[in-house]
Simulated scan of single mutants.
Amino acid sequence: MIQLLVGLGNPGPEHALDRHNAGFWFIDQVATAVGVSLKPERGFFGDVARLRLHGHELWLLQPSTYMNRSGQSVGAFARFYKIAPENILVAHDELDLPPGQAKLKLGGGHAGHNGLRDLIAHLGTPNFWRLRLGIGHPGDRAAVVGFVLGKPPQSELKLIEQAMEQSQAVLPQLLKGEFEAAMMQLHRGNRAGGQAAKAGA
């Protein structure tokens, strides 16, 4: 079951609205929903909150390192609390999914995502859960850096927020270790959301 929920992003107000901070946005949404605040923990190089959700204990973590050093924070936290990689869910921005879609996945490569790359290096395995929050793709590989470090238009932000709400709705299953049920519910919600977006276009 999931014991640690990590959001990836870059610290500082200058990055708060970047697409690359979608993982941070998700953690903020969860924290707001349950009424907790994240507090800086120097030993873990990040901001941390502890809560009970649906009868289970869950930690929230936002690394305060920059994206490409996210593993320093997550690795330190996981080692201290003896949390296995397969009990960690990492929320991150995903170029290969459109805004409004979110998918769960266990393991895999980093696909060029520097936060995932560093996590794999520090945890010593790619076998942690990922919540892939779609932000879309600029269409040109050379434009990716500026795109992820840019602010999405309001229409896309609304879709990303809806996908995060759907993701938050499957947390009860994830906390119980019911991963197949969580994936089915989330991916079914993606299809419904995509159809609604097309109807409104």
Rank of each mutant, 00 (worst) to 15 (best):
P98V: 15
M67C: 09
E41V: 15
T65L: 03
Q62A: 11
R52P: 00
E94K: 07
G46P: 03
E57P: 10
E57C: 09
E41L: 14
T65I: 05
G75V: 03
A91L: 02
A84M: 08
Q62L: 15
A76K: 13
F44G: 00
L61M: 13
A91F: 03
P63D: 01
L95W: 01
L61Q: 08
L60D: 00
H56D: 03
L60Q: 05
R69T: 04
A84Q: 13
A84I: 01
G43L: 11
D96M: 10
G43P: 00
I83L: 03
P85M: 03
R69C: 09
L51D: 02
I88W: 01
P40T: 11
Q72D: 15
Y81L: 04
L89Q: 00
D96L: 08
R52G: 13
P99I: 07
F44V: 03
W59E: 04
I88H: 02
P85W: 01
P63R: 13
N87A: 15
H92F: 06
F77Q: 05
R79L: 10
V74H: 04
L97T: 08
E41K: 15
R69F: 07
F45L: 15
I83G: 02
R42V: 06
R42G: 03
P85A: 13
H56W: 01
S70P: 04
P85K: 05
D93M: 02
L53H: 04
S64P: 00
L60A: 07
F44M: 12
P99S: 13
G71D: 10
D96A: 09
Q72M: 14
D47E: 15
R52L: 06
N68M: 04
P40E: 14
R42N: 06
W59F: 14
R52Q: 14
P63G: 12
D93K: 02
G43Q: 07
S37H: 10
I83F: 00
P63N: 13
G71H: 08
M67H: 09
Q72F: 04
N87W: 01
L38N: 08
H54P: 01
A91Y: 01
A84G: 05
L60H: 05
G100Y: 08
L51I: 04
A78G: 03
G71C: 12
L97V: 10
I88K: 01
A91W: 04
L61T: 03
F45N: 14
S73L: 08
G46S: 10
L95I: 08
H56N: 14
P98W: 06
V48I: 15
W59R: 09
Y81W: 07
M67R: 11
L97A: 09
G75D: 06
E86V: 11
Y66A: 03
L60R: 05
G100N: 09
L51S: 05
V74L: 13
H54M: 12
P99C: 07
L53N: 03
A91E: 03
W59H: 13
I83V: 05
G43S: 09
L51R: 07
P99N: 09
A76S: 13
L89Y: 02
W59I: 01
A76G: 07
F45V: 00
E57M: 11
